[in-house]
Write a protein that binds this DNA or RNA. Structure first.
Lengths: 226, 226
DNA sequence: CGTTAACTTGATGGAACTCAAGGTTCGTGG
DNA sequence: CCACGAACCTTGAGTTCCATCAAGTTAACG
């Protein structure tokens, strides 16, 4: 798979904004006050190999994290929606790249500070542990998808997951382009596109305008073995 | 992919043995005293959906954890060697099945007890957090492998990983059969077998007696893009 | 409204899967 | 110690699903 040269965000209008959300708690702990920051579409939030100074919480918009091989093959490891935390690392450096999918606001927390507080307050450390376990479970579910599911199952499972995270109404706008979906599901954009068409042909969903979809929950679910 | 009926351990000689290793610490915390227990080859340690009462540490032998779809497709999510912990769950029930690869001894810890101690001692909770982050990193690396790597790269990366975990001498016996390797790498046993042969043909490894391999480190590494 | 990126569709090819033997290893009992 | 059987592993032939290559078409945006 050949991939065009690395897409780097050009826009760098990183506009700090008022502390409206500054009171936003870190898992219900008032001592964590995040610094609000905004990123433009496709702007990099942190890069693979950089020192992991901060941890992030999405306030508005969406973020993707990915890993990339030297020849350009990319695996998107997660999409992060409002409320989600990302950027935790086991080591001192990031093992991922994080980029905004669209104009996105986040709260930034200092990793050192979080670790300092966790080292003293057991209930905070337990919350962080729990958070990591939740991510781990997601990663393991995704391994099953990547290792053993067909293209149709992957796309169907993905759409059901996004729907659930966006409110579960069955109608929503996908916050990411096909390339990101493909790289998340271990497929190519062509296969994702064809699978969308196929699902629409089978009456499992309807599309309007590329990004908007309306799922037929029952038929969709029937496509995903479990 | 059709799979033979679920392989259930028939042998159930779960023989508790003396407390020789009872002094084995839980990440250096003397208050955790595990109960030693032994499992026979292919014996189930815990099953998907069961209540997650315990957490385990491998003392001797090897364990695999996997997830399985209703039609039998299986994804092995990890192999656990002496010193490794497994069986932590985010929720109250296990989301995996764990089975002994060979005669295996483990130490069992009560999850409730660990949680009780973590809730009070921050440094313990931080260790557990760190452990979860390490597992998460492994899972994310594996996603990249499953989503984007070729069969040859998967097998080569796998062999290098096992070698490193078994001492890094380059010569070792694989503790698992081809089926488990295949289900770990998202391949079929035939493809794994063919890839072994291909790697041997290219001089990247030598086999003797099915399970024993001797890796040619340089050539092996060259096959794994990063 | 024009330009560009994003998405879709078609034709073709190939890596890995499936099906089917055959060979090897290893444990068990004669 | 050797013979037998049952897993386990390897190899071959044919097929399939998804990737690749190549146009088109639609949508987004200045």
């Amino acid at each position: 798979m050949v991939r065009p040269p690395v897409r780097r965000a050009t826009a760098s209008l990183r506009t700090p904004f008022p502390t409206r959300d500054g009171a936003g708690l870190f898992s219900g702990c008032p001592e964590f006050v995040g610094t609000p920051l905004a990123y433009a579409r496709e702007e990099e939030i942190f890069g693979d190999g950089e020192e992991a100074e901060s941890v992030y919480r999405v306030v508005h918009g969406a973020v993707r994290t990915h890993k990339i091989l030297s020849d350009g093959r990319r695996q998107v490891t997660g999409f992060h929606l409002p409320g989600d935390l990302f950027g935790f690392e086991q080591a001192e450096t990031h093992r991922h790249t994080a980029e905004a999918l669209s104009g996105t606001r986040v709260l930034i927390f200092k990793r050192r500070q979080i670790e300092r507080i966790a080292a003293v307050r057991a209930e905070v450390a337990c919350q962080l542990w729990s958070l990591a376990k939740r991510s781990l479970r997601h990663a393991q579910d995704h391994m099953l998808l990547l290792g053993r599911r067909s293209a149709q199952e992957r796309v169907a499972a993905f759409l059901l997951d996004v729907d659930a995270r966006m409110g579960g109404t069955g109608t929503f706008d996908l916050p990411m382009p096909r390339r990101d979906i493909a790289d998340y599901l271990g497929l190519t954009i062509e296969t994702v596109s064809r699978t969308f068409s196929q699902l629409e042909g089978e009456g499992a969903l309807q599309r309007s305008g590329g990004r908007q979809v309306c799922l037929h929950h029952d038929r969709m679910h029937r496509l995903v073995e479990d």
